[in-house]
């Protein structure tokens, strides 16, 4: 069951009210000095600091790491003397060849699609905020919410590599070790998670007056 608020009211930034970023307490912002939450002691901020610049920086770093994450092997295995190196994509192809379509889909979505779509979604959100767009605010906020929620699932491939490397340690018979690609891939996941956390969705709503030219 959903209960919606009774009536629309002005925005926090205009009334000098803001929710504490940590505990959510509604705080009245007074003066220009540093102010701390009376309940949990966190620093009070009207907006996340340098949101746009920080999110861009983290996104560019993530985009750069995306290349070695896909090009370098995530693991090297030697089974009964035959050596092989696996990349993210070859892991997907492996499951396809063995007829494990649902698993191939899970790995493809979590490891290839989600990181890529997450990068694109955050770039779109940043550009739309920088262009002071006033259209589709609700949809863009929802896009942000989804981006924030699904990011962690991309770690699944890293965990698979870690588990295989922990289990397949049978000397000359069978041996799996993690590759540099796994580190690069994990850094993409972590960087995009930090990028999503540093983006402030309130910026989407900060340009209230409908712009004369709907760019």
């Amino acid at each position: 069951m959903r209960i919606y608020a009774e009536m629309a009211m002005p925005r926090g930034i205009d009334a000098g009210l803001t929710p504490c970023g940590t505990c959510g307490l509604t705080v009245r912002v007074t003066g220009s000095g540093r102010q701390y939450c009376p309940r949990c002691g966190s620093l009070i901020r009207l907006r996340k600091p340098d949101s746009i610049a920080r999110t861009w920086a983290l996104l560019i770093a993530a985009a750069l790491m995306y290349i070695p994450a896909n090009a370098l092997p995530v693991m090297r295995s030697s089974l009964l003397g035959s050596e092989s190196a696996d990349t993210i994509m070859s892991g997907v192809v492996y499951f396809m060849h063995h007829g494990e379509w649902p698993l191939a889909a899970v790995i493809f979505i979590a490891s290839v699609l989600v990181p890529l779509l997450k990068l694109l979604a955050l770039i779109y959100l940043l550009l739309s905020v920088q262009r002071r767009s006033t259209i589709r605010r609700r949809e863009r906020t929802r896009l942000y919410r989804i981006t924030e929620l699904v990011g962690r699932w991309s770690m699944v491939d890293v965990f698979v590599v870690a588990l295989l490397a922990a289990l397949v340690q049978l000397g000359n018979l069978a041996h799996i070790e993690p590759g540099l690609g796994a580190t690069a891939f994990a850094s993409v996941v972590v960087l995009t998670m930090f990028a999503a956390l540093s983006f402030d969705p309130r910026l989407i709503w900060d340009h209230q007056e409908p712009s004369t030219d709907e760019r």
């Binding site: 608020a5 009536m7 009211m9 925005r11 926090g12 009210l17 929710p19 969705p201 309130r202």
Partner: peptide, 17 residues
């Protein structure tokens, strides 16, 4: 405790029952 609530995602002040 806080009859006035400020949304953390769009900054709208609202009264929540």
């Amino acid at each position: 405790l806080h009859p006035l609530h400020v949304c953390h995602e769009c900054d709208t002040i609202q009264r929540v029952p």
